[in-house]
Every structure is written in C-alpha cells, then in structure tokens.
C-alpha cells in the first residue's frame, strides 16, 4: 500500500442518524477515513458500533429511518452524496461492489446463479454473449465449477454461495469491494479458503477492500490497515503492525486481549468490563469511558478528537501516547 497515492475513497465527518419519535439516534458520529487503491482496510468493532451502517452509507443504500445527516463521501474525486441517482446507480457495482454476510439472503432464490450474472451484466449494459463467457470465467476464478451456473442458490453450500457472492462482486472489475462480515456465517476451514482466495484475487486484480468484521484476530492477518470503531466513532486507525504492537486506544488494547488464542499465555486473556453503550443515550465525553480502566475527569467531560499518534496512526483518546499508562 502506498499512502502517497491519492485515496480511492474518502469519507469525511460522516453523520448517520436513525429517525426516532423519542429523539434521533446518532449511529455514526463524524466518522472520517480513507481507503487507498489496492489496500485492504479492516474495520473492526462490535455489533451496533456502526460498521455495517458505514458500508451502506458509502453506497447510499441506507433506508429510512436511517438517514445521512452530514459529511461527505468522495470516490475517485466524485462526490457520492451529491451524485444524481442514475449516475450513482451506474457507479454501484461497476466501481464499488459489496459482499454481504448472508449470501443466502443476498441471492434471489428463484434465479439460477447464471441468471444473477446475466442480470448484473444487463443492468450495466454489457452484451449477453460476452457476459456468459465472463460468468464462466468468474466462477473458475473463485474455484467453482461453471456447471453451478445452472444451480439455484439453495442447491449450494454456504461456502459455495459466498464464493458466488464474491464472483458477482468482481463481475464488473470494481476498484473497491466492501465485504460486510463475509465469512462470519461459515466455519473456520471454509473461511480460511475463502480469505486466501480473496487475497490472491486482490493481488491479481488490484481492487481495494473494506473488510468489515468483529473478528480482530482475523483482521490482523488480513488487513494492511485496521480501523477500530466504538459506538459510532473511530477509536483508532493504524497500519496493522502498528496497531498490534502499539495500540493507542484502551478499547483496542482490550480487544487484542479479549480473544483466547492458540498460542501464548491464557492468563493474559480477559473480557472488557461492562457492555457497549446504548446509542440512544450514549455516555458523555469519550464513549468508552465507563468501561475504560484509565478514564479520568477529562474523559467524562470531553469527546477526544482524533489525532495522529505517529504518521498514519490515528487515535481518539485523551491519554494515548502518555508514558507508563
């Protein structure tokens, strides 16, 4: 990854709220991040932290009651939030595609796999004949027998369906693929095979990935950079090695120790005390402060701004980088 290049995707101060009679609920609170060409950006966080909302917001796929209240999303210099709907429709899938968590729900049960490809090509004005050849090629790309183009989704295993989802996402050679928990529903052996496939396809085709997951150990293996979200805000964003070696945010440190591993000391493993906050009535100041072992009065009073701890290493913590904490 070359951070010197211009970002492919640039999200600035994005605010998403859920309209609610009892008061609007802020799901994403002034979130900013960049995705560079060809990189894998991991987004880690727990349920309700806003990571899937971000994926949908980037493509303007949010439905009421979720609405974008502010900020900007630029893709290759174009303002996606200001773009007319038909231009955006052409851009979706051609430039930015998405792989959903549940391939069973993402695929149409009454269409064959082949018809999904035809549909995709037709919607983007590609000739049917070339499309059929391309579909066979794409199936081979994800290690599926093209004979499965005649299958219906329910005839495939969960792993095969997710491979179809990936093949469809790559159909128009997008520059960015967003993956929303693509392997969470799969068991570890199938997950491993699919991730290895994605990494090798990225190397061949050069697309960038935003990989959303709650599984931080997985992210540490896969991503070039990792963003950690907490309660709708960016807690930390850093190159993977820096995040693993020098986590600046107490939440990141907690997450790194919250997973039992197959190696090392088991006594180091511990849960983070407390539970993620309700976004309906989030804590004042830093939203992590009720669970933070190092919280001070400043953390209760004031929301910490995102700042650079080192070049490319962003963190939103009043006390990040202080010695001997």
């Amino acid at each position: 990854m070359t951070t010197a290049a211009a970002p492919l995707l640039s999200v600035r101060d994005l605010v998403v709220e859920y309209i609610d009679a009892a008061g609007d609920v802020r799901i994403l609170d002034a979130l900013s991040l960049d995705v560079y060409p060809g990189e894998i950006l991991g987004l880690a966080g727990e349920s309700g932290c806003g990571k899937s909302t971000l994926a949908f917001a980037i493509l303007r796929l949010l439905r009421p009651p979720a609405v974008i209240r502010g900020g900007s999303v630029h893709f290759a210099g174009q303002d996606l939030l200001a773009m007319p709907e038909d231009a955006l429709r052409a851009l979706r899938w051609r430039d930015i595609s998405i792989v959903f968590q549940s391939a069973m729900d993402a695929l149409n049960p009454v269409l064959t796999v082949g018809e999904h490809f035809e549909d995709t090509f037709r919607a983007h004005g590609r000739p049917a004949e070339a499309g059929r050849a391309r579909a066979r090629e794409l199936m081979t790309l994800v290690d599926l027998d093209p004979v499965n183009l005649r299958s219906f989704p329910h005839q495939l295993s969960g792993g095969m369906r997710q491979r179809v989802g990936i093949a469809l996402a790559l159909a128009l050679e997008p520059r960015l693929v967003i993956l929303d928990e693509p392997t969470t529903a799969l068991d570890v052996v199938v997950q491993r095979a699919i991730l290895e496939k994605l990494v090798s396809l990225r190397a061949r085709l050069g697309f960038a990935m935003v990989f959303i997951t709650h599984d931080l150990p997985l992210m540490l293996e896969l991503a070039d950079r990792i963003g950690v979200l907490y309660a709708g805000r960016l807690a930390e964003l850093a190159p993977t090695a820096a995040l693993a070696a020098h986590p600046g945010h107490p939440y990141t440190r907690g997450l790194l120790h919250a997973f039992p591993s197959l190696h090392g000391s088991l006594s180091e493993v511990r849960a983070i005390e407390g539970t993620p906050p309700s976004l309906r009535s989030p804590p004042t100041g830093c939203r992590f402060h009720p669970r933070c072992p190092a919280a001070t009065a400043a953390c209760v009073a004031e929301n910490p701004a995102v700042r650079a701890l080192a070049p490319g290493h962003l963190v939103a913590c009043h006390h990040a980088g202080e010695a001997a904490r």
Binding site: R192, R253, L262, G264, E268, R325
Partner: peptide
C-alpha cells in the same frame, strides 16, 4: 491451521498496562 491468529503470535503482553 484455519483458525484466525494461527499464524500470528499473541498480542504483546506488556501494552496492557492498566
């Protein structure tokens, strides 16, 4: 081999200094 983190060493033990 398929388990996440199988190829990785454990997170640093020292950074959790709270």
């Amino acid at each position: 081999a398929a388990a996440p983190g199988a190829t990785r060493t454990a997170p640093p033990a020292t950074s959790h200094g709270d």
